[in-house]
Each structure stands twice: as C-alpha cells, then as structure tokens.
Design a protein around this nucleic acid. Structure first.
Lengths: 245, 245
DNA sequence: GCAAAAGTGTTCCATATACACCCATGC
DNA sequence: GCATGGGTGTATATGGAACACTTTTGC
C-alpha cells in the first residue's frame, strides 16, 4: 500500500520544553514564511505548531509520534492527546488562506492536538530542515491558524495535570535538585511556593531518591541531587477517592 | 449551501444518565440490527453509541449537540469532548464491516467522542425513531465498533472529573437529599462512603442549600431536600494549587 | 570576607477518618 | 409497634500554611 495522507485530518503537537538553567517553560514553534512570486511582498511570516496530516495506515498516536520524531529526532516522550479542533473557521484568516492555497491543503481540516514534555536542551534546534525555535510560554510570537488557542488549551491541561501526576519529572534532567523542581512548578503555575514546605513535602516522598552526588561547577554551595523513581511511584500508587468539590 | 456531511469524521456521544430511584448510573445505547436479504439470517444485532457524521458548516461541539438533541430532544446539557478515536482498525470487525458496507459509510472514520450528563428520567426513551435503551454502566450489552472502549474511557474521565468539579449535580434532580448525592458518588466510583462524614462535608458547603421542603410520598422518615447553587459555587471558586503527586 | 543560594524547625489550623446509636415517620 | 432509612457527635491523625535565620561553598 502506498503512503496516502488523509487530506482533512492532521495532528498538531504542542512541544513543551523546560530549560532548567533559565527556569523557563518553552514551546517549540516552526517558522511559517511566504513571499509573493512577483514583487516579493511578505505574504505570511509567523509561527505555527509542528503537525502533519495523518496517513491511512496510522493511528493518531503514531502520527503524533512520527511528527515529533521528524522535528526533534526524539521518541518515547511523555505525550498526551488532549483535544480535537475542527471549527469551520479555524483556518479562515486571510494569511491562513493564502498559506493553504499555496500549499494546496484542505481548508476544512480537523486536527487532533497532542502535547509533549521534554527538556529544552534535548532538542538540537536548527539541525533539521525546519526553522524551529523555543519561545517562553508567556512570550509567544504571532501564531498562525488557531495555534495560539491550541497552545493555551494544552497549557491549561498541563497546569491541572501537573498537580496530580508526577509528569513534571519529564521536564527535568534525570538528576535534579529540590529547588529545580520548585522552580519548575513556579514556572508552570505562575505562583510562588514556600521553599521549606515544598522541600519537606518532596523529600518525604519515597520515590524522590537522594543521590550520593552534589552539583558540580556551581559558584555557590552545591546542592544535593535527587532522582525520581517511576517504578517506586507506580508500586506505591493507590487511587484515592477524595472528593473535593 | 447544501447540507453536506464530512464522510470520514463523526462525533459519538456517551450519554450518562443517573436513575436516582434505582441508584444506577446508566448509558444510553441504540440498537443496531441487520438481517440478510436472502434467508433472513441475523447479520448484525448489538448496540452502539449515538453519533453521526459532522456537517461542513458545523463545529464539533455543534455536531454533538445536534446528535444529542435528535435522540433525546434535550439541549443545554453538561457536555465534554474527551477524546478522539481514529485507529485504522477501529471499525474492522466482521460485523462492523457488514454494517458499514450496508450503510455505505467510510471504513476509516475518525470520531470525536463526547460525554453528556443528565437524569435518566428526563429522556423519553422510545419516543423517537431510534430503538434506544438505558444500560447500567456495569452491565453493558454487546457493543459494535470500538464503542465499549469509548464508553470505558468516558467513564474513567467522569470518575476523575467528579472528584474535583460539581458535575454530579447534573445527574441529579434539582431537589435532592444528601443521601442521593452519596448514592450517586458510590455508583460512579464503586466505593462505599461514610455517611456521617459525607453529610458533614456537603452540608458545610455554602453552595449546597437546604430547602424549606422535605420528601413527600415516602414510607419512612422524609428526608431534607437540598439544591445546588451554581452561582454561589462560581462566585466562591478559587483555584487551588495543591500539589498532590 | 562576601556574595549567593542551600538548607533547616516549629506552631497552628483545617480537614480527613474512624466509629455506633437514636429518631422520625408511614403503615 | 415496628420496619425503614434519616440523621447525629467526638476523638484522633494527618498534612498544609505561615514564618526567618544559619550554613556552606566558590571566588
């Protein structure tokens, strides 16, 4: 069977990358640029999410994994399908229409949106044929299609999810300090957290394991390093039915 | 513009209905039945979710609302889009293929799944051209397509969601007793809850309002009736950032 | 020695949990 | 008067929230 794309269905990937040094939660975006053939006016110049149409033989999950691998080379990342977007008007802005006509895409395309979690440093941006760039979640550039909406909905989902599941460790290096984790939560949630309470809470978790190692090469007191044990977490996990409405 | 359906995209609706008297959480399903033209063998005889293809002019939300209105006559229900399903194998069982060929549907259809919450008693089952029937969530019949999977994923989502948002009141009559609410949580979650603790918890909420009314027509001590005030809930609502991982 | 961030303890309060009996009503 | 489900109180334990100073290191 030939590889055949389904012309009206795509996946779009919101790639969240955390930069531990800059304490910045970022989104990976791709340049969208088009000049007119005559006069070389700039017709389209903005950013979009990475995404592509789904192939006939693929599941949605496979399509999203493929798209992400093409851009970053990475697989086995944390991934969540969080919402489908299919409003008739979602690709109807003037620039979107110019783009779609140029690329001969269908103007009624439904997209299934995923988000991925990784460390910003794990992506060799620019090594690929795409012009991809990290943007802090609070400093997004002009975005094409309905991608700003998609990013914001992914972010809302991430904010809720990080409160109840240990997905934050997908955004951190294997070895991290307690303060790294706190900084990350503060970045994601946009709040301040009391350091003493937060430390106590984390250190008491059995799946947060103190290593026999400290930071090196820092010009201050080197901090204790920890790791997260998914194994222990999953073994301990017991569903709780606390009703908090 | 003519009404034109998008042949490879549908919405499917998991309709949850709670029966306060029977203390039963139910799912509304539609009979799928087909006999062979010669010999009248039964080719297809099972149940499916209500759903239909999306029209060109519609959003996904509008399509789901339309489908639900056609079946139940109801609008303005609690609704959540919870997942898209698009595996190439999702409609590939033998009976599904017979059905699809008979109905001339596309065998690679993506569906965007929603769930709805309502009171079983609000639906006049049988009043429509569909043969629709309620089934307790733990006693589902043989289901076509991948609809058992869809229902189970909707149910998992509902279980999580009812712990943190007051969506349970969508499943109860306007006036309810505290024990009604407890029974509902026990039905959804499949657990037992301590009555004294549960009562105290609920009665202390400002948005649970004691009415000047008691049950009538019961052959026992009539219980105090309460209502839920969405207004008060929303005014009081403050996002909490409790990290419980 | 100084700048910079790491690390540390205690008190108070809210809320979850465990647990068993009396009460009001309709029949 | 009795069956049925409605309704009540207390003690304990756990964990969150508030709060400020000392320590360690590299330079």
């Amino acid at each position: 069977m030939e590889l055949e794309v389904i012309s009206n269905i795509s996946v779009d990937c919101v790639v969240f990358g955390y930069d531990t040094n800059k304490k910045s939660l970022n989104v990976l975006l791709i340049k969208r640029y088009l000049e007119s053939e005559i006069g070389s006016d700039i017709l389209v110049d903005d950013y979009v999410l990475t995404g592509y149409h789904v192939y006939e033989h693929e599941t949605l999950d496979e399509a999203s994994t493929r798209v992400l691998k093409e851009l970053t080379g990475l697989t086995d990342l944390y991934k969540k399908q969080f919402k489908a977007f299919g409003s008739p008007s979602r690709l109807m802005s003037e620039t979107d229409q110019i783009w779609i006509k140029n690329k001969k895409f269908s103007s009624r395309t439904f997209t299934i949106a995923y988000y991925f979690l990784l460390k910003t440093e794990d992506v060799g941006v620019g090594s690929k044929r795409y012009e991809a760039k990290w943007f802090p979640i609070r400093e997004l550039p002009k975005l094409g299609f309905d991608h700003e909406k998609i990013i914001m909905e992914a972010y809302e989902d991430l904010k809720i999810k990080c409160l109840s599941e240990p997905i934050t460790f997908e955004l951190l290096p294997v070895k991290f300090t307690i303060n790294d984790v706190q900084d990350l939560y503060e970045s994601i949630l946009g709040i301040e957290i009391d350091n003493r309470n937060f430390r106590r809470k984390l250190i008491n978790k059995k799946y947060i394991i103190a290593l026999d190692e400290k930071q090196v090469g820092v010009s201050k007191k080197p901090a204790q390093l920890y790791m997260f044990s998914k194994d222990i977490y999953e073994k301990m996990f017991t569903k709780n039915y606390l009703i908090s409405i």
